[in-house]
């Protein structure tokens, strides 16, 4: 990438890269689309944490959300795959090269409708990657049909009512094995940043459900995924502070008020409770809280669950440190003695 920025001195991260080098091509999504905000947060977080973009692999399925990996981290390889089946592509890529940092971006149609099966199995495997669901409750590219996360009673622009209950992707992820689960709102810059950074540091599957309004097809009255609805119904659970491993921790943590979670890479996620008693290490309590919130028409946002001790899918496979994809022939073709042994057994 070429840069035409002129002095005063360029701002660079710890790798000596500028923020521009974390950007992608120009977005083709609608102006005001929540997904663009999510892309911006991804750019900022990867830049600020100084993640080497060459080690990142981006994945997506099909839909507006799935276009967005083209709009961030242009120096990283990206794979825009097929509808609802990005998890399998990501799984294969990470099997081949377990040193990659995988980030998937998907939508509510891609994940909760056509892709619910692969999503659940990704969760069950606790594949170490970041899985961002840009959730707007509606299909944009096909012009405004309901997805499986649309709430009961919400309406389309055409007035059609949704009569079926929504899948809560966070509840599903929690129940079946993801080790970092969060919900955020594309309009909440600070919260989403802290969550994304924690997800980058997390060792395991991070499922982040971001309510990301569709300004064209689902931002009207009657929608439960609109900017206005979120303003009314969002219930922010915590104040989040992410302290990367490379920064000195100088501030003392007041006893009892803040949950300090040490992440795999040595960084810290500090979770300060706001209005209610909520413990993001208690899976069952979180599930109950989500149920309760749904009944009260509240949208809980924040870190819903974090578990830093569960082994990831890749750890169960007993792989070495080097990516298996590029092991030399001497490692992947057994010697002639092995073939002789196999042949002898068949005689």
């Amino acid at each position: 990438m070429s840069s035409t920025v002129t002095p005063p001195p360029r701002k660079m991260n710890r790798l000596g890269l500028e923020v521009l080098q974390y950007k992608g091509s120009k977005t083709t999504l609608c102006a005001g689309c929540g997904h663009n905000s999510v892309s911006e947060r991804i750019v900022e977080c990867f830049y600020e944490l100084g993640v080497n973009p060459y080690t990142v692999a981006k994945f997506s399925g099909i839909g507006c959300s799935s276009k967005s990996p083209a709009y961030f981290l242009g120096l990283s390889h990206g794979f825009n795959s097929v509808h609802g089946r990005m998890p399998s592509i990501a799984t294969g890529a990470l099997l081949a090269n377990a040193t990659l940092l995988g980030i998937g971006v998907t939508g509510d149609g891609d994940t909760a409708s056509i892709g619910i099966g692969q999503f659940m199995h990704l969760v069950r495997r606790n594949l170490p990657m970041i899985y961002v669901i840009e959730n707007n409750g509606v299909y944009g590219l096909t012009k405004g049909q309901f997805s499986a996360t649309a709430d009961v009673g919400s309406t389309l622009k055409t007035g059609v009512h949704n009569e079926l209950p929504p899948f809560d992707c966070c509840a599903l992820a929690l129940k079946w094995g993801a080790t970092f689960v969060a919900r955020s709102f594309s309009g909440d810059k600070r919260q989403l940043q802290a969550i994304l950074k924690a997800a980058i540091a997390h060792h395991g599957l991070s499922v982040i459900d971001v309510i990301s309004p569709c300004v064209t097809f689902n931002d009207h009255e009657g929608s439960t995924k609109s900017y206005a609805y979120m303003k009314e119904h969002e219930e922010v659970l915590q104040e989040l502070d992410f302290v990367p491993a490379f920064e000195d921790i100088t501030v003392e943590i007041p006893e009892g008020e803040v949950l300090d979670v040490q992440m795999h890479d040595g960084s810290h996620l500090r979770i300060r409770k706001l209005h209610r008693d909520f413990n993001p290490t208690d899976r069952l309590a979180t599930l109950a809280a989500l149920e309760d919130a749904e009944a009260k028409e509240e949208v809980l946002t924040g870190v819903l669950y974090v578990n830093t001790s569960k082994p990831t899918f890749l750890e169960l496979l007993n792989l070495g440190d080097a990516p298996i994809a590029t092991l030399p022939e001497s490692k992947v073709r057994p010697p002639k003695a092995a073939l002789d042994e196999a042949m002898d057994e068949l005689r």
């Binding site: 089946r85 294969g92 990470l94």
Partner: peptide, 27 residues
């Protein structure tokens, strides 16, 4: 250490998806 990964997928959609993801990443 294993110099390979064998994964029983949830269906054939996933098994070919994983095979392609892996092929893309050089396996």
């Amino acid at each position: 250490k294993a110099t390979y990964a064998i994964v029983q997928a949830e269906d054939e959609l996933a098994s070919i998806g994983m095979a392609l993801g892996a092929g893309w990443a050089g396996a």
